[in-house]
Design a protein around this nucleic acid. Structure first.
Lengths: 362, 362
DNA sequence: GTGAAAGCGCTAACAG
DNA sequence: CTGTTAGCGCTTTCAC
């Protein structure tokens, strides 16, 4: 083999200029380059050197190697995202917003979704190598969070939880106010004259628990009786919603309105009603939670409550970065954002029954 | 301040044992540790040393710092994922599968979704800092791919594209066979007696283009006339599908069946029909593409064609890793996987008209 | 104001 | 079989 062949970089990154290159070209030392480009205001340089260095850096479109600087700083520019399920459009949207927001702050997003059985205690490291992250956002809670979060923190990571129920930890939690959401929904239904309420809970997860609790409490406050048969528990996906609704529909004595723990499940429930020939909202009213885009596009369109995803994402990232930068945890550790009611076609007055379904307009 | 306070690690990673620690404890050199743990079969060690080192490593649950090893190897264990939109459940599922698959191979996934206007030429680096990735998977094409991909490659990254149309590059592309899918759908509809076909195209993206072309070609082959008014172009999301369908429905002379470029749009189209009081499939048949889970849960359930997401994900990751490991690009650069037809409720015989809609069973 | 030098944790080339 | 040494690219003392 020809020996004078210049080795083309062991594996990759053949080309990129380094601080050393800039230094050589500018006739200064590497440390000067680093200092000037760091933009640390405490350092002063002759206008000359600064211009020259910055000029050359610009020209070669230099920027410091993130890996090297991570090693040196003991801190990457990566944030980990641990998600229960990316299939749920609500989470997918949240993920998207978070990653956008993070990128705007110079951070990238490492995806740690883990479609595992919720029952199994998850070793966090199997989902995400947290040594590579500066911080972690946990979306939804479902396993032994206390330990998991402790692991992450002990690794020196910052942590923020979102859509996470009660304080299992000392970390910041950003949530929609589930109680307020349920109240919005129930007030709306009560106004429509409903008096028998069912609740389809995804599973006994934090957020869903909160919604169920709020449901029971508010009903109690309003002096409305509940039948515990109407509280059904299934998986927190579209199929779970379908199955749960089937059970409701099989009952002799049915609720007049069913609150479903989230939109995706509610879409499943809607389908179950449809398949059974039960009309919504004429025979039964159904509500969701989240206001995913799809909610307006099913038939009938879903009455639901909106979570302010963009605000949640922004807050989550902001808090996380603050923590990463060593700022102290702010005092109200639980942020509760207000949801908003969207009344659409899946809810109606109890008296609607037998009025017949929407007919062709023509 | 107390000077003898042990500095608690500059920012993080205070604790983790290093190879040096293991070496000290085992009474060997650091390189021995590295070599033993690397498991390189070309190196032999005394059973003694090996056991001792591995024992200690195990005990401290040591594993090499990914950042340091990335710096040294000039190669991270990160793969970048560039997605058109994570909102589409089809893409979300693909992302999930890919990240699972990648993790199984010791790689993590960096998320680079970029909800930007498709028209704008995207600087790739604004979506994902590819210096931190060993390879990139691009899902869907939509901008100046040739340049973007060239950028990535020149950075030393491996690239695989998925759901990407014709060869704009020399990279491997993994796709569902769009032509076969359209044929499946059309054969089904032809059998039902349809003779007037519309097509709602998401936008002039690769995958969608291929579907439209296949549609036109196959119709031509079958000697079926097409009305170009029935070819509608809108955004590739649920709202786009809705709008496009509204336009179809406003026409005097309507197609008897409408193929929609993907399921999400088809759901929008379904809603449009519903809102207009047009019955599906009695008045018009509608089909989708992808077979997302939702397809079974809208009413009427969507007849569609399934993309084998899991296989695609596995192949994509496999090919990417092969490339990363320096294996040569395999000869058939275009992998086309076969779709599968799912007939559900949104398609029916042309003669169904006026038979009336599903009625309550009770 | 700027340079020299150390070192983050790892791996691999080069001894022996 | 194993140790010594160099160096990935960066930042940051410490000197001058």
């Amino acid at each position: 083999m020809d020996s004078s062949e210049k080795e083309a970089g062991r594996k990759k990154k053949s080309s990129r200029p380094t601080a050393k290159d800039i230094a050589r070209l500018a006739g200064v030392s590497q440390s000067t380059v680093s200092r000037i480009l760091a933009g640390n205001p405490s350092n002063f340089f002759s206008q000359q050197t600064r211009q020259r260095v910055m000029g050359i850096a610009e020209e070669l479109s230099y920027s410091p190697d993130p890996v090297a600087s991570a090693l040196r700083n003991k801190q990457t520019k990566l944030i980990g995202l641990i998600i229960r399920s990316i299939f749920d459009p609500f989470f997918a949207t949240l993920v998207s917003e978070i990653s956008l927001q993070a990128r705007a702050c110079g951070y990238q997003t490492l995806l740690g979704n883990s479609e595992t059985s919720p029952s199994e205690v998850l070793k966090l490291s199997s989902v995400l190598d947290i040594r590579q992250t500066a911080g972690v956002i946990i979306l939804g809670d479902w396993w032994d969070d206390k330990h998991a979060i402790q692991d992450i923190l002990s690794e020196g990571n910052a942590v923020v939880t979102m859509c996470h129920s009660e304080s299992q930890t000392d970390t910041i939690t950003i949530n929609t106010d589930n109680r307020a959401g349920i109240k919005l929904l129930l007030d709306h239904l009560i106004q429509l004259g409903h008096y028998k309420y069912g609740f389809l809970q995804g599973c006994t997860l934090g957020d869903f628990n909160e919604r169920l609790e709020a449901f029971l409490e508010y009903l109690h406050v309003m002096g409305i009786q509940t039948n515990h048969d109407w509280l059904i528990n299934d998986t927190d996906d579209i199929t779970g919603g379908y199955r749960a609704m089937v059970r409701i529909l099989e009952m002799e004595d049915r609720p007049t309105a069913v609150l479903v723990a989230d939109d995706l499940m509610a879409i499943g429930a809607l389908k179950a009603a449809n398949d059974a020939g039960v009309w919504v909202p004429e025979d039964i009213s159904i509500t969701g939670f989240d206001n995913i885009e799809l909610a307006s596009f099913v038939s009938p369109a879903l009455t639901t409550v909106q979570q302010p995803i963009d605000v949640m994402a922004k807050l989550g990232v902001d808090y996380l970065l603050a923590q990463i930068q060593g700022e102290p945890t702010p005092s109200p550790r639980f942020v509760r954002l207000q949801p908003r009611l969207f009344v659409r076609e899946s809810t109606g007055s109890v008296n609607l029954k037998l009025k017949g379904r929407r007919l062709p307009k023509k």
